[in-house]
Amino acid sequence: MRDLSTVRFPGKHEEETVIAVYHRHWFDILTHLFLSVFFSVILIGGFAVLPGLFPGIMSSPNAPFFLFLENSFLLFLWLTLFLIWIDVYFDVWIVTDERIVNIEQKDLFNRRVSELRYHTVQDVTSEVQGVVPSILGFGDVLVQTAGESPRFIFHNIPDPVAVKDQIMKLAERRRHAPQTNERSAT
């Protein structure tokens, strides 16, 4: 179980309590990483199998050049793997007792942070589309708000129905709470 008290994010208030943190489902992350993983397996398989099939490769005068090429591919694959992982895993939705914060990593140099207060929530919908999402239980949660950005979307998160219920409960609680409790309104 993750210790949520250690979670830190830009703009976190001192008394704010993090209730849940959602990342994309592992399968969604894996689909983004698929090509890098596929080429890594081929390359590493090539390292293991080719010298056995063609013993002349390693004794050829150009062997260091081939090793250099293979190593360069591995280096770029490792970098690409982490760049994609950063792009996908760093998309995060943080549910606190005051608000929902969405940190969206568009690419390495493009990051967007948006937040949603519970009193603006009008409607919450969960959506699971496709065979794999239905089997593995992941999908989107769409939060309809009265604010400037009308929709707040949690993309491909695990168990979207439970998340929808949780947001509805928090929004209800906030709606029925006395106005003085709205400490984050300023």
């Binding site: 993750r2 979670v7 994010f9 943190v21 943080i94 940190i103 390495l108």
Partner: peptide, 11 residues
């Protein structure tokens, strides 16, 4: 990449 992970990771 190292800077990014250290700066923006939640934990």
């Amino acid at each position: 990449v190292c800077y990014h992970i250290l700066r923006y990771s939640l934990s």
